[in-house]
C-alpha cells in the first residue's frame, strides 16, 4: 500500500465512504459524511494510524485531504 492510498483508506474508513470517493481535492463539509462529528472521528483515526497527537489549531485547519497531508508532514509523517 502506498502512503497516499494508506491515507485515503484512513479517510474512507473514518468517514464511512468508499475509497474512490476520496481524493486530494475532497474538502471538509463538501459531502454529508464529512461533518463536524465525522471530523473528530477522522482526527482520532489519523492520530491512531500515524501515531501523532495533533494540535487543536491543526484540527481546525484540516479543511481538505491535501491540507491533511501538509499538516501530517509537520509531524514528520510522509504521506
Amino acid at each position: 500500500m502506498t502512503q497516499n492510498s494508506r491515507l485515503y483508506t484512513v479517510f474512507a474508513e473514518a468517514l464511512g465512504v468508499q475509497i474512490d470517493q476520496i481524493s486530494d481535492e475532497l474538502k471538509y463539509n463538501s459531502i454529508p459524511s464529512w461533518d463536524s462529528t465525522a471530523h473528530m472521528v477522522l482526527i482520532a483515526a489519523l492520530e491512531d494510524a500515524y501515531d501523532v497527537m495533533l494540535d487543536t489549531d491543526d484540527i481546525i485547519d484540516m479543511s481538505s485531504v491535501v491540507k491533511a497531508k501538509e499538516i501530517l508532514a509537520k509531524y514528520d509523517v510522509v504521506v
Partner: peptide
C-alpha cells in the same frame, strides 16, 4: 477533556 475524549472517541 479535549485530549482525553480523542482516546475515548476512538
Amino acid at each position: 477533556a479535549q485530549l482525553a475524549s480523542r482516546f475515548m472517541m476512538r
